[in-house]
Design a protein around this nucleic acid. Sequence first.
DNA 1: TGAAATGTTGGGGCG
DNA 2: ACGCCCCAACATTTC
Length: 486
Amino acid sequence: MCVSEKPVIVWFRQDLRLSDNPALAAAVATGAPVIPLFVLDEETPGQWAHGGASRWWLHESLAALQHSLQQQDASLVLRHGNAAGIIRTFAAETEARAVFWNRCYEPYAIQRDKALKSAFKDDGIEVESFNAGLLFEPWEVKTKSGTPPKVYSSYWRAMRLLGDPAPEGPAPDQILPVKVLPPSERLEDWKLQPRNPDWASGFSACWHPGEDGAQAQLDWFLENALEDYRNGRDFPAQPLVSRLSPHLHFGEIGPRQIWHRTVAHCIQSGDEPFSGSAEHFLKELTWREFSTAQLFHNPDLPHACLRPEYEHFPWDRAEKPLHAWQRGMTGIPIVDAGMRELWQTGYMHNRVRMICASFLVKHLMVDWRAGEAWFWDTLVDADLANNAASWQWVAGSGADAAPYFRIFNPVLQGEKFDKAGEYTRRWVPELSNVPNRYLHKPWDAPGNPAPDYPPPIVDLAFGRVRALAAFKSLGDEAQANAAKCA
DNA sequence: TGAAATGTTGGGGCG
DNA sequence: ACGCCCCAACATTTC
């Protein structure tokens, strides 16, 4: 085999798209044959293996990627096992001249990829990594003093000072295939999708995984929802949110594509991109960057409270409250609606995520890590950085966290953001006969209009007072410690 | 991207 | 007319 025919491997991970994919573009630009590879890795130590809902999405997304590669006469090679071992063997087996990938930012992935890079260099195989997943690298965004921003507003300011994100790249015109395709495992054999019971049967009605689905979703959002995003995003009955999170997590669309197309859309419609709804949307996109940066700078974020005193919190370890929350049987309407939406669709509206998370951590005093684990397993958009940073935000244990006394009252939140009860009744049909006035507090309704709905698992006023007292004592403890040290 | 307690203001009923 | 009370509406503070 002559040198020029030696292939370049593109190792796909969380970048399951052809457009704006710098690793793929660089591989194509070498002029060599390209082998797209995906490794299902459930063995690398320290990783959070895909949860159930993510596995469903991954199957669909890989099938879509296979399909679009085949239209270019290329073919995705599937392997499973310890990724570092698999890819080194694969590079040797295919006599690859180079291996390219787009960066992941999970601590275990950084460690693995770093080791792989030096191993390939030792083997004399070219290796290069690229940015496909972020507007800016976590290490690029710094305050004036050169430290990573610790609060969101500072992150946004620092990021904007870097100017516009890099432009998006086009999909390759043509991917040169290898003459003899290395053997691939069959996607179906990975059994990523549930059978007996198929709890994901409702998913395909609400999601279209894959690059085409992601692009269509962005187009829909820009045309139909962006204008009302700023106000509309708080009302879960309305679809005035982008629902791009799972597409982003799997890299079916990149944040630079979203950024530039949002800006272009505004300019076309004669609107200012950095004000109102559009800016708000770009800021939400930047929350994702901020979460990733937090994880990058705090590798323990998914399992350790950033404020150490929170490790001494008297969490309720009983199974019953957690189980009731997981199944949407707490007797608190908006909480149960959210938890059931999550279970049935793999998604929950963000406003409701905050309400459900606050209720678990504050009213039920359950460890935020139990909520994090449940979301990890059930969300199609489960993302290590977003999930960990958001739970620590709600729990108050994070660096830039909600103060401990900020406790959502699910009744008031329901009355404020789902006044007509459209969202709540959609997911909790037992409440269909409860009049609006009592929908969010059916325990007050005369005549027992929801006989099949459970009574509240905790009295909200009691839960609030209990949480305040417990979290306050944590603050006292921290102060005492600080005094001791000083 | 909080809620509840507490404080303040001002309109209207009423003697 | 005036003062008094009530209370809704809004503002501030406290957790």
